[in-house]
Design a binder for these strands. Structure first.
Lengths: 218, 218
DNA sequence: CGTTGTGAAATGATTCACAGCT
DNA sequence: AGCTGTGAATCATTTCACAACG
């Protein structure tokens, strides 16, 4: 039985990084990886890697390491990407269009089955093989296609109202590109992807450890 | 003199959220905000808000709160967004084009002064008012225009090589959209924006606290 | 009164160090 | 010998609680 204690948030983030690292390697390489190797590739300690994995079970063999194929499969299973997630993109502006066409989503099991927009000029058009539907069809599409995930790329002023629609339709997870905090019921998860916030973090590091010379980041 | 001790990474992230919250409010609203108000708006405690701000100085008035205008200005100064950062976009594919056209970057002081790509078909074209240049011109543009920040939106296989070019040219901060970990010298900062990793976090929460019913996230 | 700023306490996460397996 | 899994120790972050201030 897997060790089922508390799971640190940062560990889950790293799980994704472990998987990405494994997937980026030629599958023909040595059948096995050690926590040391994985840690070095990611700039963290080997103990950290082992602790993270230990939250979910025992995947390694003492003296040998982790079997490449097994660990990859285990990580996918843990993260929930060993299946297909029917997803939709809401808002077919610049960001929405780029996301729809991003081929990596499909290879990761996030299947964009529809896009939605309020602009009559683009409703009915096709973007990257996905038909753009009016928002009035959102509810029925989410229900009939069992859509669990929405990628929200609408303008900030309508983000909350659109979210309410999504939640009412039954969406359980939202990747939010709009620069606002969304209020949702407890059973719905939000992950934020605000570009400007990431850039501000960069600006901070540049102006803090740059000119002044001191790099007093914890 | 500002309290200049250790600065927790999470605090810097929240600073951006405080600023976003303040900027989203009508400037005509009450001249003052309390740590309680700000915390409630972001789903964190008032003590957390005060501790975060205390890392950088004393901005509030006991019994009153924080002056809206002063706090906004202080946050911009701390984050380094009270100035213009000359930036470039490298890779004019789907993501690169969306980023170039994202109007919020300019209002936040991140001025995209050029874009670069290796595809002869799009070199010379203009995207959102920005001219696409060949990579051979990267070095001279970065130097003559004092570019500090690059938004890297090239395919994963060439991300590291492109990064090396950027670093050699003098770029000091990179927002990386490619799904790889970039190796850079210590004086260069990297912030990662990998869409698929964010989606995996969402999938994890959905498959973990969903079907099985237990929400054992720390 | 309400609110800030801040030590002290509590909680959370990472690293250490080593027993035990291959 | 090399490596995992894990309790114990260290380090980081958050919350508590309250004195001081307007």
């Amino acid at each position: 039985m897997p060790s089922s204690g508390r799971i640190p948030r940062p560990s889950v983030k790293r799980l994704s990084l472990y998987l990405r690292e494994l997937e980026s390697r030629a599958a023909a390489e040595p059948q096995t990886v050690s926590s040391r190797e994985l840690g070095d590739a990611l700039g963290i300690t080997d103990a950290q890697v082992r602790k993270d994995l230990a939250c979910f079970g025992q995947f390694g063999q003492p003296g040998v390491g982790y079997a490449y194929a097994e660990l990859t499969a285990a990580l996918r299973r843990i993260l929930g990407t060993d299946r297909v997630w029917n997803s939709i993109v809401v808002g077919a502006g610049n960001i929405g269009r780029a996301v729809i066409k991003y081929p990596r989503l499909r290879t990761k099991g996030f299947e964009i089955i529809a896009a939605f927009d309020s602009d009559p000029a683009i409703i009915g058009t096709e973007i990257g093989g996905v038909r753009v539907q009016p928002l009035t069809e959102l509810d029925s599409t989410v229900r009939t296609q069992a859509v669990a995930i929405a990628l929200l790329a609408v303008p900030a002023p309508v983000a909350q109202a659109t979210t309410d629609q999504l939640v009412a339709a039954g969406v359980r997870g939202i990747l939010n590109f709009a620069p606002v905090r969304l209020a949702v019921p407890a059973h719905v998860s939000i992950v934020s992807a605000d570009l400007t916030i990431e850039l501000e973090q960069l600006a901070f590091r540049l102006s803090f450890s740059g000119p002044e010379g001191n790099g007093a980041l914890a």
